[in-house]
Structures are given as C-alpha cells and as structure tokens.
Design a protein around this nucleic acid. Structure first.
Lengths: 198, 198
DNA sequence: GAATTAAGATACTATTCGTTTCTTATTTTT
DNA sequence: AAAAATAAGAAACGAATAGTATCTTAATTC
C-alpha cells in the first residue's frame, strides 16, 4: 500500500485482516467486474484496487475463477427477498419478476459467462443454484393464490411452477440487459395466467 | 509441418492454400474445442493440429474469439433442417425439439460461454442469431396446424410462437447437456399445447 | 513482552497472445 | 518457360498475466 507524499503520516496506517480484508477484496472484485468486465479482470488489478497484494488473494482463493465466484455469491446474499403480497396473483407475479429484473445486472451476466468458460465441466444450473433449484417464492405465491381461489390447484405441476422465472431467466441470459415491462407482462398475461386460470 | 522420419518422401508435400487450408483450420478448431474445451484452446494448439503456423491464423482472423466464432458458424450451416411433417402438431413439435436437442452439444455450449466472456458487449442473442430471430420452422408448423384445424389461429402471438424453442434453449443453456425425453414432452404437453388448444 | 500469525512487497517462472521477419513453395503474369 | 507476385510456414520476440515463493514487518495471541 502506497502512502501519498503529501501525507506525512499514514492516517489509514492499519493492516486489515480477516473478514474486514476479505470484504474489501470482494468489493474490489465487484468494482473491477463492473468497470473492466470479467475477461479484463486481473489478480493484479484486484490486489491494487483493494490495496493489498496478490499473495493475499491466493492465500484465500486458489484461482481467479474461485475469487470471482466468491464475489458473486457475496453480493447481497441472493435476496431471499420479501415475497410480495399485493392481494392478487397477477400483481404478485409482476412484482416478483420486476425484482428479479433488478438483481440480474449486465455485470453479473458477464461474470456468469466468464465463469462458465473458465470453470469448465460445471453447468450454469450448478453455478446459479448450488443448493438446487428452490422455487420458494413461487411456491408461496401460488399457495396464496390457491387459497384465494384464483387458480386451479391441480394446474401447478413442477414445470408450470418454474415457468415465469425460467422465461425471465432465458430472456436475461439472451439479452444481458433488463427485460422491458412489456416482456414481463407478456410472460404473466400471455403465458402463465392462461395456464393456471380456472 | 514436420515429416515423420520413417517417411522417406513427404507424400503430402503440398502447401495448402485458400479455402482448403481454411477448412482444415476450422476443422482443427472444432476438434480442439471438443477435446480440450474453449478455455484451453490455444492458437498454438490449433496451428499445430492443422499443420500450419500461428501467422497463418492471424492473417485470417484478428484474434482467438473470431477464429472460434468462425468455426462455430462453419459447422453445419445451422441445419435449416427439414421442417418435420408428421401429420399432427404434437409430433411435429416433438420432432423439432428432438432435432434441436441433437444439434446443441456440450462443446457448442462451452464455446458459446467462452465467446460471450471474451467478446464482451455482445448479447447471446446477437451471437446465436446474427440475422435476428427467425422462427421459420415454428411459423410453418403452426400454419399447418391451423389449416388442419388443430389450434386456435388467434392464439399464436409472438411470445407463444417462440415458447417451445425458448424453453428448450433455456434448458440446454442451464444444463449444458441434451434434454431428457421427459422434458421435451413436458414442454409440448404441459405448456405449449394447452395454450393453443381449441 | 515474547511468540505466532498473517499482511504486503517484490521477484520469479511459465504460458500464451499477438507481432514481426525471413525463407520458400505455389500461383499468376508476361 | 521464365519472371514476378502472392501467400504459407518457421522461428523468434515482446507484453501481459496467472500462479508461486520469499522476505520483512504489523497485528494478534499467549
């Protein structure tokens, strides 16, 4: 860490350790990802931005891919966000997809592709859902919709359950940018709701 | 190009040029992709396998990504395959998805992810559909189904039209391996057909 | 206050991209 | 048929970067 010349005493003179240092490094990875992108992200660059050295990085992560992976997993612990409850299924769904739309950024997509290329022999599914696909949110939404009498209970097979999120993910992967509001409503109104309507 | 010692005369002694040479190089890229994968594919490796030198590669393609891209586009000109006509929509759809299933291999997926990471600022859609999404096949299938009176003509909105292929692509991207027969029938029987049925 | 642990600096090796230069086989032109 | 033009192939090179190894010293633990 360089001390600028006009700084007689290094006021930040403190050697960070453990979790504090780790957090600073992961933050630096995220900044590097969003500024230079995955393929131009270097260990040197991350070390410099986080004010440490490569050795420190390699003591924690065996290689670049694992470091980036850690940074991705670290960024907001995959917001087990509040399951929306607007009082009706349609608005619940729209709300859920909009929130998903916000959380998958171009930066994240870029990193996902990079990781897929570099990790090899791993599926995108394994990368995205290390603990298996959950569908927690959709399960809750639909349960409530059944209770309200909005949909046919028997319509909810596994493939239907994941349909809105699957289509949204497909769209996000394909275009690496947020979905339009129109796309979101199409998924809900033209595909999902007709399949579960009474 | 090395001549093996037990070969007194180099029977293949001929300096390939133009299209012939280019084809050999692209073939070598495909072999490298399927043996070592995108991230371990090197220009040296391709040069060696195709019996030429790096300079030759760089005279044709500005960098590794463009070379791989050319190889992907070269492999079977995206089989504008025969549109199946089995006499009924359901079997037509199954047939189409099965054929799609065969043509997207693990190797291709791996290369797609690698290219996405390396090309930067390009969407997967732009990579997959340089001329825009066509949906030629689905359009024909559905037209025939309408003529047979199998489905409601008004059901065919753009999002519905692309639905089976979108879901299949999503599945292939997510798992980097062929879909199960069960997945294919689910897409057709649980999602698509109910949406267009009379 | 001594001993231990880990941060940070620095140098090093190996790989690989992309470039350059040179020779010579092959094709085209005269 | 010879001369000229073109492009292949060999080889060496510089730059970037992954990953390793070593050493000093700050921070923590005992």
């Amino acid at each position: 860490m360089k001390i600028s010349d006009d700084q007689l005493v290094d006021s930040t003179k403190t050697r960070r350790r453990g979790k504090e240092l780790e957090a600073a490094i992961l933050k630096a990875v995220q900044v590097e990802l969003s500024t230079v992108g995955y393929s131009n992200l270097t260990m040197e660059g991350v070390a410099e931005r986080s004010g440490t050295s490569k050795a420190v990085l390699y003591r924690r992560w065996p290689n670049r891919a694992e470091l980036v992976l850690a940074a991705i997993h670290a960024r907001v612990p995959l917001p087990l966000e509040e399951v929306p409850d607007t009082g009706n299924l349609r608005d619940d769904l729209l709300s859920m997809l909009r929130s998903m739309n916000k959380n998958i950024t171009e930066t994240v997509s870029d990193a996902l592709f990079g990781l897929m290329a570099e990790l090899g022999n791993i599926s995108l599914a394994a990368l995205l859902f290390p603990h298996g696909r959950q569908n927690r949110t959709m399960t809750i939404l639909l349960q409530r919709a059944v209770e309200r009498g909005e949909i046919r209970p028997d319509a909810i097979k596994s493939r239907i359950l994941t349909l809105p999120v699957d289509l949204a993910r497909h769209e996000l992967l394909l275009y690496s940018k947020p979905m339009s509001e129109e796309t979101i409503t199409e998924i809900v109104d033209e595909v999902f709701l007709p399949l579960v309507a009474k």
